[in-house]
Design a protein around this nucleic acid. Structure first.
Lengths: 347, 347
DNA sequence: TCCCGGCCAGAAAAGGATTACTATCGGCCC
DNA sequence: GGGCCGATAGTAATCCTTTTCTGGCCGGGA
């Protein structure tokens, strides 16, 4: 591969001049020299070495997105949003699936630090795990000191996200919508307690109940993993609990839980929504494809990613942009309806 | 951020010695010096600069995956497979959504070249677009000459993939399975003609018909985009064609097409499978979640990604691994059954 | 005529790590 | 005792680009 030196030699100028031309510096270069350099660069198929450049600038045009799992439609959508904005700005996007494993996450962040990534966007919620967060925070501090931008899209140990959605308000709105349909016994699939975002959503559930003057009943809250399997398990847990037969609606902290519940309910012969109504949260692309199609709360995921990059970009430019909070929207599809026969029905 | 020089100074040794310790070279270093260097590195929170290292080695521990769209479950699954294998080997994964736009793809490859990515894995099928492929090929040639590994997981302009599946055999097997259920009039949603993989799958459809001694009928083949919208459109196209009312099964070149068809058929009031049977291809995670759940051909997508990285890794190690072909498997779910009332039924 | 400012070109240093090469020292063989 | 070898340590070159600094040259003002 040709280097700037070879381009300079072919063009009959110094490396400095060649560099000024190809990197579009505003240092003045005569038109003649400029043309010769451009010709030489084309001739040699010159592509600048981003590593050499990065070594000097202590930053390489790469933004990383830390997700829990790239195959989760929630995260792939966010990553796509980051990528749309980032590629316009000439950045590449690294995606890291941490599987919610703090050790993996830490080793990713270390690698990103060693690569001098310009920015790190944390798409997933942080975990409440002090020991693990310590190492991550050490790396992040070093990166920040070095000029990198760190952006969170979900609540985390360090506080609120720079760009995010109002999770509590979103869930509360769904609870209110369910109440509007006539439901009074509404269960909640809460996901894991260690996840900050899950806590916010649980708080939203409580707030929604409060707004409807319905008493909070701990027995109606199922805490499981944040995925399909967790949703199925939650249904079983709920049904095994005393006093849940009269539940007519299940509100979920995310779509995957709701989808898992849907599958399990179908297997159990509980109709949806004529037995129980089921609502999700996130509006991942699959939600509209299931049968019955899933009522949920739409999060502008791609937009979230786009704004996440934009926030990072402005930070890199030395600005101090204000935090952003995006609006959510309740989307009622076929999985919710008037109160039915209840969770206790079916086989 | 501390450099190796500072570590060396604190340890009271030369940079060379410090480097030999932290990079685990097999050059002999006394136990005493080694311990002092390790202590100093820990003390200074030293993390080697991957750019400096990469500048020297002309390669950075990054593997890129070129996909059409990371939000397509097919691709996110493949990317995840690459990542699983790559992160074990200490690599980061860059994903690039080209949107099947050759210009975008070319600019991504250029960026990867400038970054000295160690490997590029093309997850999606190539497009038959000579002009666009020329620039890409120029960059790839330079990267290969520089020691990078290029791996394709789908057929492309340059020929067969290094790791891939037998698309034709997979589709043919599904056609045979449909024939086994009693179908004789089987339509095919082919996707775009310009996509190499779509051509292979169409060939598989013809081969399957041939095996069942059914004449190929061009009117039963719908060529559209490779996504949900394409599937819906294909149903409309088919229904607008003379002589398709008797079609009892729709075989699709990928799951997204089949899912789009499913949605459209539901809207049209054509039952599945009692009106027509619908079959997909790929077995993306959504396929099992729809209603009716989608019969399809399972591709080991994650495994494909894993092996793609492994192939790249072995190439980087100087080996010349043999191409791999992975087996596919017909998965019959609820969207297929005995021949029904036909595509012409419904509203 | 002399000096100064503007324009442009180039030399050289810096950024961080690796490695080929050189150097030192103790010990061993003849 | 001289020469040589093995084990370590260090020096310096190298990867490629950017940028600061120096300097040449030309035109214009005093």
């Amino acid at each position: 591969m040709a280097s700037i030196t070879e381009v300079a030699r072919l063009a009959g100028v110094s490396a400095a001049t060649a560099s000024r031309v190809v990197s579009e510096s505003d240092y003045p270069v005569s038109a003649a020299a400029r043309a010769r350099v451009l010709d030489a660069a084309r001739e040699l198929d010159y592509v600048p070495n981003a590593l050499a450049r990065g070594l000097l600038k202590s930053r390489v045009p790469v933004v990383a997105v830390i997700v829990h799992d790239i195959t989760d439609p929630y995260f792939s959508e966010v990553v796509r949003g980051v990528e749309d904005a980032a590629s316009n700005a000439g950045y590449l996007v690294i995606s890291c699936s941490s599987e919610r494993d703090p050790v993996r996450e830490a080793s990713y962040v270390r690698l990103l630090r060693s690569m001098r990534a310009a920015a790190v966007v944390f798409a997933g919620s942080g975990l409440d795990d002090a020991a693990a967060n310590a190492e991550i925070e050490r790396h992040l501090a070093a990166m920040r000191a070095d000029g990198a931008a760190i952006v969170h899209l979900s609540p985390h140990a360090g506080g609120d996200p720079e760009v995010g959605v109002d999770n509590a308000a979103g869930i509360a709105a769904m609870v209110v919508a369910l109440v509007g349909l006539g439901h009074r016994r509404i269960a909640f699939l809460a996901g894991p307690e260690t996840l900050f975002v899950a806590r916010e959503r649980l708080a939203g559930y409580r707030r929604g109940l409060e707004a409807a003057a319905i008493a909070y009943d701990e027995r109606l809250v199922a805490r499981t993993g944040f995925d399909l399997a967790g949703g199925a398990l939650a249904v079983d847990l709920l049904r095994a609990t005393e006093g849940t037969g009269s539940v007519t609606a299940i509100c979920s902290a995310n779509d995957l839980l709701a989808l898992g519940a849907l599958q399990r309910l179908a297997a159990l012969g509980v109709g949806v929504p004529d037995g129980v109504s089921v609502a999700g949260f996130d509006d991942i692309s699959t939600a509209a494809l299931t049968a019955p199609s899933l009522s949920t709360v739409r999060l502008p995921l791609r937009e979230l990613g786009r704004l996440g990059f934009e926030q990072a970009d402005r930070r890199l430019a030395g600005e101090e942009p204000a935090p952003r909070r995006l609006a959510t929207e309740v989307v009622l599809r076929a999985s919710t309806g008037m109160p039915g026969t209840g969770l206790g029905s079916g086989r």
